[in-house]
Simulated scan of single mutants.
Amino acid sequence: MLLRLILCGALLGLNGWASAQPQPQRACGHLRSAFYEYGALYYKAADGSWTGIDKDVVDEVARRLGCTIEAITDSRVRIWAGLNGGTVDMSVSSLSTPEREKFARMVPYLAERNYVLLHKDVSASIRSMDDFLADPNIKIGVIKSFRHGKAYDVWLDRLRAQGRVYEAPDYEAMLRLFKVGRVQAVMAISSGWYPLLKQDQMNGNYRIMDWAPPKDVLVGGLILSRQRVDEALATRISHTIRAMREDGTLRRIFERHLDAELASRLLHF
Rank of each mutant, 00 (worst) to 15 (best):
T68F: 10
T51L: 14
L41I: 06
A81V: 15
H268I: 13
Q227K: 04
E70K: 08
C28M: 15
S128Y: 01
D56P: 08
V186N: 00
L266M: 12
L118F: 13
E37L: 13
F146V: 11
S33C: 14
T87G: 04
L258W: 04
Q23E: 05
F146G: 07
I241A: 00
R147Y: 13
L11G: 09
H257Y: 06
L175I: 06
L262F: 07
Y36S: 09
L177W: 15
Q201M: 08
V57T: 01
W17V: 11
S145Y: 12
V183G: 02
Q184S: 06
D131W: 01
K215N: 15
V165Q: 02
R100K: 05
K102S: 13
W17R: 14
R228M: 01
R236Y: 03
I143D: 04
L14A: 15
I223A: 13
R176T: 15
I237K: 12
L233R: 11
R76Y: 04
M209T: 05
D210E: 10
L258M: 02
A40S: 07
A260V: 13
R158H: 09
T97V: 00
L224F: 08
S145I: 13
R127G: 15
Y152T: 09
N15Q: 12
I140A: 04
P214Y: 10
L175H: 03
N205A: 14
D230Y: 04
R147D: 11
N84G: 10
Y194M: 06
V122P: 08
Q201Y: 11
F254H: 03
E60V: 03
P22W: 03
D259R: 01
K120A: 10
L267F: 03
A212L: 06
Q21T: 14
S145K: 13
S191Q: 05
D130P: 07
I189L: 08
R64S: 12
D157C: 09
L266F: 08
R207H: 00
W155H: 00
I126H: 10
L196Q: 05
G181M: 01
A260Y: 13
A45Q: 12
Y166K: 11
S190D: 15
M1R: 14
T97I: 01
L133G: 10
I53N: 02
Y194P: 04
Y109T: 01
A234M: 02
L7C: 12
S190F: 11
Y38T: 07
G52V: 00
S125Q: 11
C28S: 13
A27Y: 08
F254A: 03
Q199A: 07
D59I: 08
A260C: 06
T235W: 08
A62G: 06
Y166L: 11
L258K: 02
L5T: 12
L110S: 15
H257D: 06
G220F: 12
L159P: 04
Y115P: 06
C8T: 10
R252V: 10
A151K: 11
D89I: 08
A45T: 12
H268A: 15
